[in-house]
């Protein structure tokens, strides 16, 4: 697994029914593009997060394909409408097969 990978998510703890909330996510990851060379001229193999998803109570909120031009430590900010209490599940898929998951609960009422 790539070293120093750590997902971070910011979701409000509570919201009104049907409220549109802002979600911020960041995963620390070096996002090696596969186009750089090391000191000896050898290509450094590509190692990036290639997909990011957010689900709410089983429903897909956002599903992002990520390409090598995305920066180190990719940051995604998006909005979601929350109809009911539940749980957000955030998932990042690494080139090396690793999957990183974080969950956040939100209370509506």
């Amino acid at each position: 697994m790539a070293s120093g990978v750590k997902p971070r998510v910011k979701v409000p703890k509570s919201a009104d029914a049907g409220e549109v909330i802002t979600i911020k996510t960041l995963i620390s990851h070096k996002m090696e593009s596969g186009q750089r060379k090391d000191g000896d001229g050898n290509i450094i193999p590509r190692s990036i997060i290639n997909r990011f998803t957010c689900e709410f109570n089983g429903e897909m909120v956002i599903d992002v394909n990520i390409e090598p031009a995305i920066s180190t430590n990719p940051f995604f900010e998006f909005e979601a409408k929350v109809p009911e209490s539940g749980e957000f599940v955030f998932t990042w898929y690494d080139d090396d097969g690793d999957v990183y998951t974080t969950t956040k609960k939100i209370t509506v009422g």
Partner: peptide, 12 residues
Amino acid sequence: DFDNPGMIWVEA
């Protein structure tokens, strides 16, 4: 702090 990229290294 969530938006401030410097905080990643502070955490590290």
